[in-house]
Design a protein around this nucleic acid. Structure first.
Lengths: 156, 156
DNA sequence: CTCCCACTGCGCAGACTGCCTAGTGAATAG
DNA sequence: CTATTCACTAGGCAGTCTGCGCAGTGGGAG
């Protein structure tokens, strides 16, 4: 169920040069085209590769402010709150976590002032007891997977 | 600097069917191929589209546990801590946030037990004063961008 | 020893990409 | 009012890649 060295190198290659084709990838990896194709197909059907969606930078479309909000939810209101948050476009991501029935969500906004509007939108809902927000200043490590892939392929 | 309706529809299309080609996209959008190509090129050089990296599911490569850790940093140790965390493969993402010199990072681990090892790795570093961790149980809203794109293209 | 599987190396038809040209309509500047 | 600019349409061309299939090879498992 893990990934081997070849899978790892293929993933790294795709992460670094996403628009590369199967043929070019096979050349870089030093294997036959069929092999690269088979590996790629397997990674996709395995669920290792979820997809190749475009990575859109929220800042570039007018939402330069990112924040994380920790929400405390009233007992039994979880489903309602999830449904509510799913309707807010500025909520990019939502997790339920351990702890006192908490949720953690990632928000974006057009400005610090606009963030207030977004937060009001988010917490202006019956099931939410309390919210604490942390505004992101810097992002020293952007979302990455290559180091993990490398480790996984070494160990697996 | 924003995106218009056509950009928005193109982004949605790409998000939904990432491996679609320019030609097919132009057909679906009802525009000429050159137009679709020009829009796509512009979105890329604008920085709106950062890339088309494969989305790898950590769970599928043996890291099914996700957690968020809030770190409190000793004054002046920020740079060292960032450098330290950047070397840990299980740290998928790191943000510095407002508040008491805090950082927020996303971690993955092979199991709940393994998470202890990862946390020790992360916090076993001089500059970190305190860490509080929340284990993710569910992910009702996975990272998404389409709703925001739709809103941005309506307003822009 | 035999079977099975992954990999290699090859070829084919179809489709797509990058690049170019010419013409149109709308908005803008003079 | 006219000239210019810009985005878009529509088409063409050469080169390349993809999806697919086929035969052959080598190593591991039963």
């Amino acid at each position: 169920m893990g990934i081997d060295g070849l899978d790892g190198r293929l993933l790294e290659l795709l992460a670094h040069e996403p628009r590369i084709g199967v043929l070019e990838a096979s050349r870089r990896l030093g294997v036959a085209r069929g092999t690269a194709q088979a590996r790629l197909d397997r990674l996709k059907s395995n669920g290792v590769i979820r997809g190749f969606g475009p990575e859109v930078d929220p800042a570039a479309i007018g939402y330069p402010v990112t924040a994380f909000a920790t929400l405390e939810i009233k007992q039994g209101q979880g489903a309602d709150v999830r449904a509510h948050l799913a309707t807010v476009p500025e909520v990019l991501e939502l997790h339920t976590t351990t702890g006192s029935g908490d949720m953690l969500c990632r928000l974006v906004a057009r400005s610090n002032a606009d963030l207030q509007r977004v937060i009001d939108l988010v917490v202006g809902f019956a099931g939410i007891v309390r919210a604490s927000t942390a505004i992101v200043m810097e992002n020293p490590v952007p979302l990455r997977i290559v180091p993990l892939v490398r480790q996984a392929s070494r160990e697996g």
